[in-house]
């Protein structure tokens, strides 16, 4: 991966423990990782860095994940970016809602190990 251009990944979660682990594991893959702890900052980074993949929680300060996804989906510069929702919310109406808004995948945090999450991200940026 070192000879290729590193994939840019934006991880959005208000919980620092998740951010630390995910950032560390993705860096091992050679990805360039950006992190944000609120929706407002996520939108600003996405606009500037145009990440290949955005991993985002739904419950966020300032601007919630639903609104962030809606705005990201409307941004033509991010047409090729993949959006994975990574949340503890498991209600079907939340899943349906974000898919309608433009998310490519929905992962319920408690159901995935670190390895499974990293594998999923790897498969989506290949």
């Amino acid at each position: 991966m070192s000879e290729k251009k590193a994939h840019k990944i934006l991880v959005v979660d208000d919980n620092q423990f998740y951010l630390q682990i995910i950032e560390s594991e993705l860096k091992k893959l050679g990805c360039e990782v950006f992190t944000a702890q609120d929706g407002e900052k996520a939108l600003s980074i996405a606009d500037k860095e145009l990440p290949d993949l955005i991993l985002i929680d739904l419950i966020l300060p300032k601007v919630d994940g639903f609104e962030v996804i809606e705005k990201l989906s409307k941004n033509k510069d991010l047409n090729d970016s993949k959006i994975i929702v990574f949340s503890q919310l498991s209600q079907q109406e939340d899943i349906d809602k974000v898919k309608k808004l433009g998310a490519d995948a929905y992962m319920i945090k408690k159901d995935f190990s670190v390895k499974e999450l990293v594998d999923k991200i790897e498969s989506m940026i290949k």
Partner: peptide, 24 residues
């Protein structure tokens, strides 16, 4: 109910993940 579940599940998932990293 969704919020309370979310708040309880987050620490549990983080504990699980850290154990996975230690074991691996």
């Amino acid at each position: 109910i969704a919020i309370v579940s979310h708040k309880l599940l987050s620490p549990l998932t983080i504990i699980k993940w850290n154990l996975e990293l230690i074991k691996g």
